[in-house]
């Protein structure tokens, strides 16, 4: 399968990328290419111009930014997985990165690309929703910052405008918390049929706060607020699992029916909370 013809330009800097994206109708950013190239091959998308941001080395980093980590948009899954700062301050993000696709995919795919692509079945968008991360975007009018919860607007849809480049993701450091990411797949290497992120802070037998986010249970990541509120002591796990379906709208597809996904979500929320609370 060969993509339809397109032009190709290498961006030397973020400013250059923004400029190139404005130079043509229907120009598209090429990052790791691990969502875009499969779509090009199937000719599901036929951009006139690809602007390759893969050579902008200053978009690959993980930095300590006080109470947050700043992660460059072009940081590859492999590096998110193995970065010592991510492992120390956001272990759930490192762990989830290691479950994306396979090593070959993780050597190329980027965290910015995963968010920008906004596949409801992708791992990072929901994990970053639970982490209350922020997305930094650079466009022709300068820079703006958007909470991840507002960044994804629907299936493959985000607030990114045609000339925008996602440059950074800011993730609050977790501090002492229990966490879990459970991803249910039919085959190794697959996207999540359903995924659950759970982050729990607790003291003296009570749960002080919980953040629960669901992957592939709606067109965009779901923050399971009702479940979070239901969880005030470790004994409330069952009630939280029941409440986790509020606000969901799961798809039916070859991986599973909507009903099956609802079942999975309840089971996985229960297990994830159990793991997070005991970790």
């Amino acid at each position: 399968m060969i993509p339809a013809p397109f032009d190709y330009e290498v961006a030397e800097s973020v400013e250059h990328a923004v400029e190139l994206l404005g130079s043509r109708e229907d120009a598209k950013v090429l990052a790791g290419g691990h969502s875009l190239i499969p779509l090009l091959r199937l000719r599901f998308t036929r951009p006139a111009l690809l602007v390759d941001i893969g050579r902008i080395d200053e978009l690959r980093y993980v930095r300590d930014a006080g109470d947050k980590l700043a992660i460059g948009g072009m940081t590859r899954h492999h590096n998110v997985q193995h970065d010592p700062l991510v492992q120390e301050h956001c272990p759930v993000l490192s762990y989830a990165a290691g479950l994306i696709g396979d090593p070959q995919v993780r050597h190329r795919g980027t965290i910015g690309g995963s968010l920008a692509h906004a596949d409801p079945a992708a791992d990072f968008p929901a994990v970053l929703t639970a982490l209350e991360a922020e997305v930094v975007i650079r466009g022709p009018e300068g820079e703006r910052t958007v909470p991840v919860g507002e960044f994804v607007t629907g299936v493959f849809d985000t607030v990114l405008r045609p000339q925008d480049v996602l440059t950074e993701i800011r993730v609050p450091k977790l501090g002492p918390t229990g966490w879990s990411y459970l991803k249910f797949t039919r085959r190794a290497q697959d996207w999540a049929t359903v995924g659950v992120t759970a982050i729990v802070r607790r003291s003296n037998g009570t749960v002080d706060s919980a953040a629960i986010a669901l992957t592939n249970m709606a067109p965009k990541p779901v923050r399971a607020k009702a479940a979070e509120q239901a969880l005030t002591t470790p004994n409330d796990i069952e009630a939280a699992a029941e409440a986790s379906l509020e606000g969901t709208d799961p798809p039916s597809d070859t991986q599973g029916s909507a009903d099956y996904r609802r079942h999975l979500a309840r089971v996985l929320v229960r297990r994830a909370l159990g793991e997070a609370i005991s970790s």
Partner: peptide
């Protein structure tokens, strides 16, 4: 291998 790391060569453009 691309610079020593495994990649799927059907999912890369030659120009990359």
């Amino acid at each position: 291998l691309l610079d020593g790391e495994s990649v799927k060569s059907c999912t890369l453009l030659g120009v990359q």
